[in-house]
Design a protein around this nucleic acid. Structure first.
Length: 572
DNA sequence: GCCGTTTTCGGCCCGACTGTTTTCAGTCG
């Protein structure tokens, strides 16, 4: 299998290996850059397309170009295999621990003979790191914390690593002879932000030919057959396949979708209908009922159908059955988006290209929000650049009357809660997203106060990624969310649902609480490249989990109303 | 490894933060 994502991963690995070998860090960075470029190529990776796509691209020189061709021709890169063999695998494993970089990892390997994360954890507990020069008690504690965090999420994946794969597998299964229906179940169907694998339920009368077909499916590394079929994909992700006869399909899909906590609420609710829930299916008068589809499961239990995204322990059956539940927000409701980056700061595509891509997706407005001046690492915009960008936006808007580019900014919230530009500059933007990007380790009260102060600024339209978490990599900063939401209500500040599958922040578990406060949301892709506009599907999924409707989200408003909505707060 | 030129070699984004030091190195974004 040759694809650009695998190649990009190889280049990223080469970069890490070079750092571990102690080579020139800029050489390592060159491979990191190449990985990003390859990943964002808009064409498939073939000998015919690659030269054209990468010709004259900054960052691809003769050596890396040669390696790309070698990969296309042979599926491997010898240089990678050589340096991989030359670097102990343990080192490669150790640098995955947050807070532990290549330099310290090498010291641990050389001086303490640490050969695995388990050994390192043991060495920390034995207090053996403090004796090393450059290490101390705090470093040791930080590493231990990092290991704890990693272990907690081993074998777990963010939704965007699982959902697209699950869709491909389900589509492949549907093509097989004898298969009547196949659907994604489990946490992926419920759109949980972190999943431990993929579940697929298949309606099939005889599973022999399905098993053969799965063995031949691209990307399968290992397969164990039994009552369920357990696949291990090349990426390491597990996929459990449940083949069942068609008359059991509906119940199995329902049962395997879960969540266990949601299912546990049901026996009591189904009792008035004389229905029992067992592992075998719905039972009435000791007889297992036929449930060819999922709707029939709910009909026979005589309770209302619940969207898969809502089937969590948080689901309140009594409240739901007693009221009219409006339709959850849907992809079709979205008219425009906010929070994309361009080449003005750290984006990969130009303002014009991002706008064209948004328009091509059928959107009618796009809110650009590059980084502000303090975000040096992201090439944040100095004031003269702000004006330059504004001019380009005005020029683009003047030639396309049916599409509107909104001039926004993602302004850093500085450690004291002030913003990154004076008010007279902020006032010139159509909207401002205020986000924390530095000094993450302030105490909860200081951080909360800092964010509230930013929200009190009349020009701050919305609060960006409210906790700063990076799923499976970094917990969010300490913050009192109840106070933040109360302040959002008082100040009329919108809350961002950052749709990056790495963030999904504000967490859906807060959505109803915010909604009850009268707070409205913006679902923002935080896209740094055209293909990241696709992040929207994860943000919408999160909003659905939060029980939000089109009315709760400003992206559903028409172009004619949007500027007014964005500027409501400053007119208060 | 890549780039650009005052071109074949020197610089590469850079500042904050932290924990270790006793003036700095490593990590992160």
């Amino acid at each position: 299998m040759t694809d650009k994502y695998e190649l990009a991963q190889i280049f990223k690995n080469i970069a890490v290996l070079l750092e571990l070998k102690g080579e020139n860090v800029f050489k390592a960075r060159a491979y990191d850059t190449a990985a990003r470029i390859v990943e964002q190529m808009e064409t498939e990776l073939t000998a015919a397309t690659v030269d054209k796509a990468l010709k004259g691209v900054k960052g691809i020189g003769p050596a890396i170009s040669q390696k790309i061709h070698e990969y296309i021709d042979t599926g491997r890169i010898r240089y990678y295999e050589e340096i991989k063999a030359a670097v102990p695998p343990a080192l490669f494993e150790l640098v995955r621990i947050p807070g532990l970089g290549p330099k310290k990892a090498v010291i641990l390997y050389d001086k303490l003979g640490i050969n695995s994360i388990g050994e390192l954890e043991y060495a920390c507990r034995e207090n053996r790191l403090v004796a090393l020069s450059g290490f101390g008690l705090k470093t040791q504690a930080k590493i231990l914390q990092g290991i704890k965090y990693m272990k907690k999420y081993q074998g777990k994946y963010i939704l965007s690593d699982a959902w697209p794969v699950a869709e491909l597998i389900a589509a492949y299964i549907r093509l097989q002879p004898g298969v009547e229906e196949a659907a994604i179940a489990g946490a992926v169907r419920r759109r949980v932000e972190i999943v431990d694998g993929i579940d697929i339920v298949v309606a099939v009368s005889a599973s022999a030919s399905l098993i053969t077909a799965l063995q031949e499916m691209p990307g399968v590394e290992k397969m164990e057959t039994g009552e369920t079929l357990d696949l291990t994909m090349a990426s390491g992700i597990h996929c459990r396949i449940f083949p069942v006869p068609p008359e059991k399909y509906g119940y199995t899909l329902f049962y395997r979708t879960g969540s266990p906590e949601y299912l546990a609420k049901l026996p009591q609710a189904a009792r008035p209908a004389g229905i029992g829930l067992t592992a075998a299916g719905l039972v009435r008068d000791n007889k297992v009922l036929e449930t060819p589809d999922e709707k029939s499961v709910y009909t026979q239990m005589n309770i209302r159908y619940v969207e898969p995204e809502l089937r969590e322990k948080e689901y309140d059956m009594e409240a739901d059955n007693g009221s009219l539940r409006p339709l959850l927000i849907d992809e079709q409701d979205i008219r425009g988006i906010f929070h994309v980056h361009t080449t003005y700061s750290d984006g990969s595509h130009s303002l014009a290209d991002m706008a064209a891509a948004a328009r091509k997706r059928g959107l009618s407005y796009l809110g650009v929000a590059d980084h502000s001046q303090t975000a040096v690492y992201a090439h944040g915009l100095k004031i003269d650049k702000v004006y330059e960008q504004r001019q380009e936006i005005d020029a683009l808007n003047s030639v396309q009357p049916d599409f509107l580019i909104l001039a926004g900014m993602e302004s850093d919230i500085l450690p004291d809660g002030s913003l990154d530009y004076p008010d007279d500059i902020l006032a010139q933007f159509d909207f401002v997203i205020a986000s924390v990007h530095s000094a993450f380790r302030q105490s909860e009260s200081v951080m909360t106060r800092r964010i509230i102060r930013a929200m009190e600024n009349p020009f701050v339209t919305m609060l960006g990624h409210a906790t700063g978490r990076i799923l499976l990599a970094r917990p969010g900063y300490e913050v009192n969310m109840k106070e933040i939401l109360a302040a959002a209500k008082d100040t009329g500040t919108l809350m961002e649902i950052n749709a990056s599958p790495y963030r999904l922040d504000l967490d859906w578990r807060w959505h109803q609480i915010a909604k009850e406060n009268g707070i409205r949301f913006a679902i923002n892709p935080d896209a740094h490249a055209i293909d990241e506009l696709e992040h929207m599907r994860y943000g919408i999924a999160a909003a659905r989990k939060g029980g939000l409707t089109a009315a709760d989200v400003i992206n559903t408003r028409p172009i004619s109303r949007i500027l007014h909505i964005l500027q409501q707060k400053r007119k208060k």
